[in-house]
Design a protein around this nucleic acid. Structure first.
Lengths: 193, 193
DNA sequence: TTACTTATTGAACATCTGTTCATTAAAATC
DNA sequence: GATTTTAATGAACAGATGTTCAATAAGTAA
C-alpha cells in the first residue's frame, strides 16, 4: 500500500471525483459508499481497501481545506482599514475569510448528522495556530497557573462558537461583521465587561 | 400517536432499557437498530414509527441530562472556598460538576464518530443559560455594537472548548482544576493578557 | 361489555454494509 | 522485456437499513 503506486492514485482520484459529483447533488449523509463506487467505477471492495467509511474520503478533502486555513493565517494581514477600533489579534481574525471562501464545505462540516470528526479537525487546526502564537507572544504576560493547553482550547473553540452562530444564520452576515464582533468581544472582555 | 397511549409508553420504555443495557456493553456506534429491537423485543418497524435513527433514541436520554445541567446551574453556589482568587461567574463554573457527574455520558457525546447533534444540544443548553445571564446582568456594561447572540455563542463554546480539552485527557483533571482554569482565564483576559 | 381507534406485528422487498477469497491485471523492479 | 509484487476485481456472504402492508391485538371511550 505505498501511496506512490499509480493504481492507488487513480483509484483515489476516481473516488474523489465521484464524491464531489455526488456532493453537488445531495448531502453527504444521503450518499452511500455503494453509490460512490458505482459513480467512480471502482469495486466496492477496493473502497474498503483505502477507507473505512465515506467520512474517511471526505477527510482527505478536509486536509486540503486545512492547508488553506494555515495559509490564510500566515499571509500578511491586509484589510485592517475596516477595523478602526482595534489592532488585536489580526491573525485570528483572518480565519473568517477562510470560512467564507469554503462555506459550501463548512455547511457540511456543521450539519447535524455529520460525525464530530470534522469538527475536531477544524478545532485542532485553529487550536494549533493559536497555541503557537500564545506560546510565543503571550506567555510572559499570562497568569502562570493557566495551562496553555486549556487556554488554547478555550480560545480556539470560542472562535468556532462565532462560526457556529454564523453558520446557523446561513452565513448571511458579512466577514467584516464577524471580524468586528470578534474584535469587540475581545476588547470588551479586556476592559472588564 | 398521542404520547399518553400506554402502548407507546411501554414500547419507548423497552427501547430505552435496551439501549442502556447495550451501552453498558459497547459504544453507541457499534449498536445497531436491529440489535436494540431484538433486545427490547420490539418489532423493528415499530422503532421507525417513533425514531428515525438510534441517535433519536439517545437524544431522549440527553434531554434528561440537560435537565440536570439546568438544575446544576440554578442551584445555589457552594464550593467557593477552593477558589480564593475570584468570584467571577460562579454560575458558569458549576457546569463542570455536571459534566463530571455524567462523564460516562459525555464520553459518548464527544467521541469522534457520533453525529454533531449531541454537541449542539450541549451547546444550546449552555448558550441559553449564558444568554439569559448576559442579557440580564451584563448588557449595560457591554460594547453596544456587540451582538448578544454572537457573544453568547462565543462564551458558551469557549467553555465547551475547556470541556473538550478535559475529555481528551480522559477527564483525569479534577473539577477544581477546571474551575481554576476558567477563573484564571477570565481573570487574565480581563486584565489584558 | 361493546365498539371504535390505533399501535404493534410479521413478512417481504430492494438496497447497503463490511468482509473474505481466488482470480486478474496493472504497476514496480530487475 | 521478463519477473515479481501487489492493487483491483467480481462474486458471494450474513447482517443491517428503511420502507410498505394487511392482519392483529392492545388500548381508549361510550
Amino acid at each position: 500500500m505505498r501511496t506512490t503506486d499509480l493504481r492507488i492514485i487513480k483509484t483515489k482520484q476516481a473516488l474523489h471525483d465521484a464524491l464531489l459529483t455526488l456532493l453537488s447533488q445531495k448531502p453527504l449523509e444521503q450518499i452511500s459508499i455503494a453509490e460512490i463506487c458505482r459513480e467512480a467505477k471502482v469495486n466496492r471492495g477496493t473502497f474498503y481497501l483505502h477507507y473505512e467509511q465515506k467520512e474517511g474520503l471526505f477527510e482527505e478533502y478536509f486536509q486540503e481545506i486545512m492547508e488553506d486555513l494555515y495559509q490564510s493565517y500566515e499571509e500578511p494581514y491586509r484589510a485592517v482599514t475596516t477595523l478602526d477600533t482595534n489592532q488585536l489579534d489580526p491573525n485570528t481574525i483572518r480565519i473568517f475569510h477562510h470560512i467564507e471562501r469554503f462555506k459550501m464545505f463548512y455547511r457540511i462540516v456543521f450539519s447535524k448528522n455529520v460525525p464530530l470528526t470534522y469538527y475536531y479537525m477544524l478545532f485542532d487546526g485553529i487550536y494549533s495556530l493559536l497555541k503557537r502564537d500564545i506560546t510565543s507572544h503571550h506567555v510572559h504576560q499570562m497568569e502562570d497557573h493557566i495551562s496553555i493547553d486549556y487556554y488554547s482550547a478555550y480560545q480556539a473553540n470560542a472562535i468556532i462558537g462565532l462560526i457556529i452562530q454564523w453558520y446557523r444564520g446561513d452565513f448571511s452576515d458579512s466577514v467584516t461583521m464577524l471580524n468586528q464582533q470578534l474584535a469587540a468581544i475581545l476588547k470588551n472582555v479586556r476592559s472588564g465587561g
